[in-house]
Amino acid sequence: MLAAPAVGCVVAFILLPVLAMALHSFWLRDPNGIVIQQFTLTSWREFLDDPFYLEVLGRTGRLAAITTLICALVGYPVAYTLILMPDRFRALMILLLFLPSWISFVVRTMSWLHVLGPGGLVNLLLRRMGVIEEPLPLLYNDFSIYVGMVHYTLTYMVLNIYIGLQSVDRNLVDAARTLGAKGWHAFLEVTLPLSLPGLMAGSLLVFILAAGTYITPLILGGTGNVYYSNLIYEAVIPQLDWPLGATLAVVFIVVLTAVIGLYARLAGVGTLFRKVSA
């Protein structure tokens, strides 16, 4: 009974829209882009007949996976440092960590143009220092996309790992050390495994965010940096093909749900979702 409002919200804000979208994918689109409510498999046939869509989906999965990996490698030491800090510094650091997210995501992404561009900060410094003569191609390629993606998602990763680390009792590390484990061993045997739920939750979140973004490749990507969400955007906005857009979106939701399901199974549902909600 108590769950009724929650269930209501899930139905109203998640289930119904997804169902509406699924329905849309079976409708007909006339040459002018007007959607006619008449059952057809045209969009699904288009999706299934052309390996292009799955190819881009795979490419998107790889982008999200690599982004997640970089975030984990960069984010863990950051979160660990936060844990070791005295309380008031930590509060300040967490504030600083959040500060950029008060700025619009698009603006934050665009700011990289001024950092990575040929006349940007990095190239300017390297040139001033005499390290290079010609500007390095840091922009409009995979590198700049990953920079943008990691920048966008790192906060979520750090925060989740931080929460995971926070739940590790400091006494456990002390216990391991008194029993003969050196600091590094104590970390590997105690801290790391016990903070894994936070890392896993953060990874899931980052993966989903990274898989879904289309702004970053649009702004920071170069030729050919097209990902699945860009295809959905292309279908819906310039091509005015809502049924195809809906088909692509439904596939995306199903695939992501499957990824989450599989992941939850591997990571252990309980711990994972406890951390996600934490």
Binding site: P31, E55, V56, T223, G224, V226, E234, P238, Q239
Partner: peptide, 15 residues
């Protein structure tokens, strides 16, 4: 438009 837009998206994405 329909056919060319779609083809264009693909060519741009993968050459």
């Amino acid at each position: 438009g329909d056919a060319w837009q779609r083809r264009y998206t693909q060519v741009m994405a993968r050459g």
